[in-house]
Amino acid sequence: KPRTPFTTAQLLALERKFRQKQYLSIAERAEFSSSLSLTETQVKIWFQNRRAKAKR
């Protein structure tokens, strides 16, 4: 499955949200993903990867 190329605007929004909160609830994820027109899975995986990156 090819990787999702996120737009610059989407990445900025994701990073901004991540700075506020490293873990999203299911409801927050649903709302946030639709506002960015991404799937919930894409947002979930992005947050997982971003948390892993923050640990390094």
Rank of each mutant, 00 (worst) to 15 (best):
K1E: 01
K1R: 06
P2Y: 11
P2C: 06
P2G: 12
P2R: 11
R3V: 14
T4Q: 07
P5M: 11
P5N: 15
P5W: 02
F6Q: 01
T8Y: 09
T8D: 13
T8R: 04
T8P: 12
T8S: 13
A9H: 09
Q10M: 03
L11E: 14
L11T: 07
L12T: 15
A13V: 08
A13D: 03
L14P: 15
L14M: 10
L14R: 00
L14T: 02
E15V: 03
E15G: 02
R16Y: 07
R16T: 14
R16A: 14
K17V: 08
F18W: 05
F18T: 02
F18I: 09
F18H: 04
R19H: 14
R19K: 14
Q20V: 08
Q20Y: 07
K21M: 07
K21D: 11
Q22R: 06
Q22P: 15
Q22E: 11
Y23N: 09
L24A: 03
L24I: 09
L24P: 03
S25I: 03
S25F: 05
I26L: 14
I26E: 15
I26D: 14
I26T: 14
A27W: 03
E28M: 07
E28K: 12
E28G: 04
R29D: 04
R29T: 15
R29F: 15
A30R: 09
A30D: 06
A30F: 05
E31L: 05
F32T: 05
S33R: 01
S33Q: 03
S34P: 06
S34Y: 02
S34L: 09
S35P: 08
S35D: 06
S35H: 10
S35N: 02
S35Y: 09
L36A: 07
L36V: 09
L36R: 05
L36G: 00
L36D: 00
S37D: 10
L38I: 05
L38D: 05
E40S: 04
E40H: 00
E40T: 04
E40V: 05
T41Q: 09
T41C: 11
Q42R: 01
Q42T: 06
Q42I: 05
Q42N: 01
Q42E: 14
V43E: 07
K44Q: 11
K44D: 15
K44N: 13
K44R: 11
K44V: 07
I45E: 15
I45W: 13
W46T: 02
W46Y: 00
W46Q: 01
F47T: 04
Q48M: 10
N49F: 03
N49Y: 11
R50P: 02
R50Y: 05
R51Y: 08
R51T: 08
K53A: 13
K53M: 15
K53Q: 15
K53Y: 12
A54K: 06
A54M: 10
A54N: 09
A54R: 05
A54Y: 13
K55I: 12
K55W: 09
